[in-house]
């Protein structure tokens, strides 16, 4: 029993500080929920239904350009989760079936980062830690997006606060670039997305993203 308590306490102690940098994100997301024109509860329902900040934001900001473009873009933004799923798969093999179904729902970036440090723990301990971190993060996310969406209308539209969305994506982009080919791939993606911007259904976005990935693969091949 003592041990259980300490794992749970440890999980909460790890999850809370990692949540703090996500708070400005929830404010931006709330703004997108308000500006999407949906009823607030429906915009907020993306938090429990999708439960992934970048995908929620992409969907809500692009929805006015058409559902197909917004859905595709949001799912592509989520492609990184495939890597998390693959990396976690061996550890989940030793887990009961209910956890194998429920666990992936909680697998956001931050939970992945923390859980990866524990994959060699004994299965029971791993499960407790994962659930503590995952549920703590989930509750905080649901509460703070709800709080932000209720407080949001306080900020007048004339402030141009929506500009913070591209700034945030740029910030995420820059921090994810860990080697030169990724920077080149990002530039090609941006250039192609701009040149193809007038294509219907915002397909320039996909074309740009595709061009970036192809560029990256070519550069990696050249390096060898």
């Amino acid at each position: 029993m003592e041990q259980h308590k300490s794992i749970i306490r440890q999980g909460m102690q790890d999850a809370v500080p990692i949540f703090i940098p996500a708070i400005p994100f929830t404010l931006i997301l709330a703004l997108a929920m308000i500006e999407s024109g949906m009823p607030l509860w429906l915009g907020w329902s993306t938090s429990p239904v999708i439960y992934g900040g970048a995908a929620q934001l992409t969907l809500l900001t692009l929805l006015s350009d058409g559902a197909v473009a917004a859905i595709t873009a949001a799912l592509i933004v989520n492609a990184r989760h495939l890597m998390y799923s693959a990396a976690m798969a061996p550890t989940f093999q030793q887990q009961p079936i209910w956890f194998r179904w429920f666990g992936p729902y909680l697998l956001v970036d931050q939970v992945f980062a923390l859980a990866m440090l524990r994959i060699n723990d004994e299965p029971h301990r791993f499960r407790q830690y994962y659930l503590t971190v995952g549920l703590t993060f989930w509750v905080l996310w649901l509460f703070s997006t709800a709080f932000a969406v209720l407080m949001g209308p306080v900020v007048p539209a004339s402030w141009g606060l929506g500009f913070v969305v591209p700034l945030l994506f740029l910030s995420l982009l820059v921090m994810g670039v860990d080697r030169a080919p990724k920077a080149v791939a990002a530039m090609i993606a941006a250039a192609v997305a701009y040149l193809a911007a007038d294509l219907p259904h915002r397909s320039g976005l996909l074309l740009g993203a595709g061009a970036g990935v192809v560029t990256g693969m070519l550069l990696e091949k050249l390096r060898r």
Partner: peptide, 11 residues
Amino acid sequence: PSVLAALVVTM
């Protein structure tokens, strides 16, 4: 990185 760059431009 590719999706994020294309997203920033699209916005």
